[in-house]
Write a protein that binds this DNA or RNA. Structure first.
Lengths: 340, 340
DNA sequence: CTGTTAGCGCATTCAT
DNA sequence: ATGAATGCGCTAACAG
């Protein structure tokens, strides 16, 4: 920067200003600085800038995994919103574990991010401690649960928690109610990857069936494994073997549902005539299965975009306190297609 | 750090040492420092560390997009390898455009990464310039093409280029040869997302058909759009409408192939009896389609892991020059299933 | 094995 | 609108 300053015949400070806020210097000086800067191939050091200004222009983004398309979409929304503003997302992978999340968060915080985006509201007390100690904005995503909510408020010491997402419970309820409305009587559940959000969906589904007077716990098949097409195929077979009279199934993620659909075709089980099938998330391809899959479309990308927006708002205004607690519900859409 | 030093009764320098290389201080001092550090909740500032030591512990990772599972897998391999070593990947999205790649790279470089991982070998001259000017290791991935290779060597001024991947051309050739061996005579091609790697696959396929004396350019359907299940379904219909006698199809990515398979089922076209179908990449679900999809399994994750390993090797030894140019071919596997 | 000195490259704060 | 002085928090280099 000193070299550029010398070349432009100004002080280093003026170079710094000219490059960051061009209209804070005279037009003539600006031109000279820009020319010199370009000619010398000057690239400002963000590290030095960060140390001097206490702004790293990075944002910590913690998600459970890269193998679930849901979080990729979330990430894409975050990235496309932060990047144009000059912020660099730093990905942290928690592997669905609150303890690992705390560990990863600790690592990320050592980079002094200007903001933090987390998945879910289920964090360790240690994580809540860390978050409470931060002076930068924090946004939680994907989860808006009432229980988690209250717990969060409590944990966060009444300081308020920003969250963007939708009600997993309500979405699960919607699917359950839809299946019941279709006149199905033996409605089963297949779930994998039992994180809190999956559980809430299942809770919603269960409540809907109870409200319809058709809940049978025996028809619930829940396993801890990561969801996949292969697992869906396998679990469908297991579920039907155990309860051949099942006439509808809710699978907690579309990859499971797609696998189940393939397996139905293989086994010659007519869908939806003999078995109705519903998925969750409306993942790629779900509109094209045979028959097209009934599912719940979730606004993952939009959640990422909105979370990033809130964060930017909080990072821009360098006001004294943290901004107002806030909750953004982006809803969901029941996609009734042909498997139900 | 000064506070920790005071609490432990040592100098700040000793705290720094005790925390970074515990065995460089006496056991007693180490214990005192660790205790004080923990008690005060000290988290070293990486920004300051970076400025003082000229090592940011970050790595720039440039990929075309987050919507193609191939690059997610690559990214996962990179992340799982870098993260345990304390390196933080910084994702940059190029949108498949060399110009955008250069722009993004410039941004990333302002963060002073300790290493750079890129996708492909097709970069702008400006990008090559930037890379040549770096003193940190650079690894290119996914592409090992001879042409790109030579170009790269030229561009890089004989300095040598590190690349990890497989031969897209050979993989395409393998699929073409397989289809020909199966006795198919009217073998078509459907391709989207026409980046250099896709083109090389197509080139390989084309060469195989020529070698078999069965290449008909009329059966090639290439569109610039991003690949997807929906696009596969649509293009299958278009291809068959234009050339009803087609008896085999290579689709340049599995999502296209899965869509094509769905559409065949809808149109009542027996696979493989009337039409053989082959995909590429062996994406999730391809082993479960009806019938299971013949495709080429590509080592995306392994490429990410190996690229990160090479990078780490280069970053650890702070030797004078860049390490030896090197090329790592991780190969591919033809997965013959039932669609051919 | 430990401490001292100096400086990484900027931006904040104040002065002009 | 521009410049000078100062320090961000840590580590390299050297001394002891």
């Amino acid at each position: 920067m000193a070299d550029v300053a010398a070349a432009a015949g100004v002080s280093a400070m003026t170079v710094s200003r000219a490059l960051r806020r061009p209209d804070s210097v005279s037009a003539e000086v600006r031109a000279r600085v820009e020319e010199a800067s370009r000619r010398l191939g000057f690239v400002p050091s963000r590290v030095a800038s960060a140390l001097a200004s206490a702004r790293t222009m990075t944002v910590a983004v913690l998600i459970p995994s890269l193998t679930n398309a849901v979080f990729i979409d979330l990430l894409a929304g975050v990235q496309e919103t932060l990047s144009p503003q000059g912020y660099q997302p730093m990905i942290g992978l928690t592997g669905y574990g609150p303890e690992e999340e705390e560990r990863v968060l600790r690592m990320q915080l050592s980079h002094d991010p200007d903001g933090v985006i987390l998945t879910g509201l289920d964090h360790t007390p240690g994580t809540w401690d860390l978050l409470r100690g931060l002076t930068v904005p924090v946004v939680h995503t994907m989860d808006l649960s009432v229980e988690g909510d209250l717990a969060a408020e409590g944990q966060d010491g009444g300081c308020g928690v920003q969250a963007v997402g939708f009600s997993q419970f309500d979405a699960g309820y919607a699917i359950g109610a839809h299946l019941a409305e279709r006149g199905r009587r033996r409605i089963g559940l297949i779930a994998g990857q039992l994180d809190p959000r999956t559980r809430q969906r299942c809770d919603g589904w269960r409540q809907a069936l109870r409200d319809a007077g058709r809940h049978d716990p025996a028809l619930e098949l829940m396993v801890p494994d990561a969801t996949s097409v292969a697992l869906g195929a396998e679990l469908l077979e297991r579920a039907l073997a155990a309860h051949p009279d099942t006439d509808a199934l809710f699978l907690c993620n579309d990859d499971l549902a797609q696998g189940a659909l393939f397996q139905c075709a293989r086994l010659g089980i007519p869908v939806p005539d003999r078995l109705a099938v519903a998925g969750f998330n409306d993942l790629a391809g779900s509109a094209w299965t045979l028959p097209p899959l009934t599912t719940v479309a979730t606004p993952r990308r939009a959640i990422g975009v909105e979370a990033a927006r809130l964060l930017i708002a909080g990072m821009e205004d360098r006001g004294p306190g943290r901004e107002n607690p806030r909750r953004v519900d982006l809803g969901f859409r029941l996609m009734i297609r042909e498997t139900t």
